[in-house]
Amino acid sequence: MNVAVDPVRYVAKNMRLDLRLIAEMIAPGSRVLDIGCGDGTLIDHLFRTRGCDARGIEIDMAEVTRAVAHGLPVMQGDADTDLAQYPDAAFDYVVLSRTLQAVERPREVLRQMLRIGERAVVSFPNFGHWRVRWQLLRQGRMPMTSVWNRPWHETPNIHPCTIRDFFALCEQEGYRVERWLAVDDAGQRAPWRRFVGLANLFGEQALFQLRKAPS
């Protein structure tokens, strides 16, 4: 029997919120690859509600088994190594939901996503949130919040970034930000969402839709 191994990845997933927001970005009938798809909730949703040809990659074998046993096309694989296998432009959207901060080489993963897909949809927890900043300032210790909830020596989140950091990376890499939004801990999009500085302070999660800038 399987020994259930606690997945060493970002765990505080609220799939329903992610599912809703990401699904809204994806055109019906498109080809989608969901990297770090967990038990496949999003790909199931995209297939059932949007008629997408949605597939997944997941590093945790217990999740993969659960997904395939639910009839979902999911393969065990690693974002850092397996994306290179796919041909160019194999997908319309490549989704990386709350996984970017846990991969070895985020920049390379983004490059691969925009090589194999026309668009990338990326969500990540915002390290620039005021609570994170406040804890570091006040206590001088690594923040522990509901989102950043593992001690520094155990966290799989080895590449945290802020919303501003991500904008800067997109600029540096020549990616066009087609859409972006930030949500607070209740999952609500707030009025401050239009202003990067405020979003970076009050947004707990960020969601970006990227495309390669025309060369």
Binding site: M1, N2, V3, D53, R55, M61, V64, T65, A67, V68, L72, P73, V74, M75, Q76, G77, D82, Q85, Y86, P87, A90
Partner: peptide, 16 residues
């Protein structure tokens, strides 16, 4: 991986 290179629809599970 070969199936990925062919953009095939593939599920892959290792059973413990």
């Amino acid at each position: 991986r070969a199936l990925n290179r062919a953009a095939a629809n593939v599920s892959f599970v290792e059973i413990a």
